[in-house]
Simulated assay, not measured.
Amino acid sequence: MSERDTGTGAATGAAGPPVRRPDLATETFVAHRSLLFTVAYEMLGSAADAEDVLQETWLRWADVDPGTVRNPRAYLVRITTRQALARLRTLARRKESYVGPWLPEPLLTSPDVAEDAELADSVSMAMLLVLETLTPTERAVFVLREVFGVEYDEIAEAVGKNLAAVRQITHRARARVAARRPRATVSAAETHAALEAFRRAVNTGDLQGLLDILAPDVVFLGDGGGVAQAAPEPVVGAGRVARLAARLRRFGAAALRPARVNGCPALVLRLDGRVDTVIALHVADGRVAGLYAVRNPEKLSRMEHETVLRR
Rank of each mutant, 00 (worst) to 15 (best):
A289D: 05
R240Q: 15
A10V: 08
A293R: 13
L119T: 05
D65R: 07
R311V: 07
D116T: 14
W61S: 02
L108K: 01
A193R: 14
D49H: 04
V186C: 15
V227T: 09
A259S: 12
A84G: 10
G7V: 11
Q229W: 12
R310K: 11
R93N: 09
A242M: 10
G16F: 11
G209A: 15
F198W: 01
L108Q: 00
P265L: 00
D206M: 02
S46D: 05
Y292K: 09
L85T: 00
F142E: 04
D112R: 13
W61L: 01
V150G: 03
D49S: 07
L281I: 13
P297W: 03
R243N: 08
R181D: 14
P66W: 08
L269P: 08
A231G: 06
R257F: 15
V150R: 00
D5H: 13
D116P: 14
G273L: 06
L271V: 15
T307W: 05
F37R: 00
Y152K: 05
V77S: 00
R295S: 08
A189Q: 11
P66M: 10
R243W: 07
Y41A: 08
R93I: 02
D212H: 06
A120Q: 08
S124P: 07
R270P: 02
F142Y: 12
S301I: 00
F37M: 06
M1Q: 09
W102F: 14
G149Y: 08
G222F: 01
A84R: 00
R240C: 01
R21M: 09
G7R: 05
R200A: 12
V294A: 11
G286A: 12
F220G: 04
R274Q: 13
E132M: 01
L119S: 04
E138L: 03
L134C: 10
V53M: 02
R295K: 15
R295Q: 13
R274P: 09
A92C: 00
D65H: 09
A246M: 06
A238F: 09
F220S: 06
A193I: 03
